[in-house]
Design a protein around this nucleic acid. Structure first.
Lengths: 120, 120
DNA sequence: GTCATTACTTACATTTTTGTTCGTTGCATA
DNA sequence: TATGCAACGAACAAAAATGTAAGTAATGAC
């Protein structure tokens, strides 16, 4: 999102992340609020204000940033209507829908893992 | 890993992450090198030096931090032998093994997504 | 003409994550 | 006696991610 200094090790190492399909996948859903947004948009079309209301604890700036990133990565579609006040709707792309069942499995695993951790 | 100031919004918002099984799951594999490590340990027991050689581009400190976090989260087991020079072996826990097939699916999805993105 | 509305944007501050460099331990070997 | 080894730890620095606070645009309602 922000400008990168070239030649930093952080940037340099990025190739090891991007070259791998798995880390590439995770990088697209790794933002703090991204999967929550994807989950909320599952099966629905929502306006920015709907998301804002749902994620009242997330600042508008963060919501915007995460939405922009998701759009850039082809996970959500943005439709802006030329109205005043503005209306913008978001919905999942097909690739994001293909991700849904995977996320459900991950969620179940997370639940089991949480139990495991509590009894240890 | 590092001390947290209480009352920061970042910390405060963490509950929305931890309360959700999905974000909880992702938080455990979200570190920069964690899944690469998990992937490398799949089906094998490896020494710290093995991992160091494999991930030559990751600093020892980062490797240590990620391993510690994985251990704390119950994804890897650490066995230290009382020898000199020291010998420490790492292997996956059962929960981590249960995660493997999921990660494979995610990886495949990542590959498809990468192709999609390139043609757009 | 003032105000409310919606979906943002900008400048800046804070917090977290990652990386750099150097040191430690205790024994074996040269 | 000096050096190398393996697996770290600690102090510090850089970079990224997230959060705070304020402002913008165009229009319709009052």
């Amino acid at each position: 999102m922000t400008a990168r200094k070239k030649n930093s090790t952080y940037t340099h190492n990025e190739k090891y992340i991007v070259n791998c399909d798995l880390t590439y996948a995770l990088s697209m859903i790794g933002g703090r609020w991204k999967i929550l947004i994807l989950d909320k948009l599952d099966g629905k079309t929502l306006r920015f204000s709907d998301l804002k209301r749902e994620f009242y604890y997330v600042t508008e700036r963060m919501l915007t940033l995460q939405l922009k990133a998701l759009e850039k990565d082809g996970l959500i579609k943005r439709k802006a209507y030329a109205e005043v006040p503005p209306r913008v709707e978001y919905e999942l792309t097909e690739m994001a829908m293909a991700l849904s069942p995977l996320l459900k499995q991950l969620s179940e695993w997370g639940g089991r893992q949480r139990e495991q951790q509590q009894t240890s």
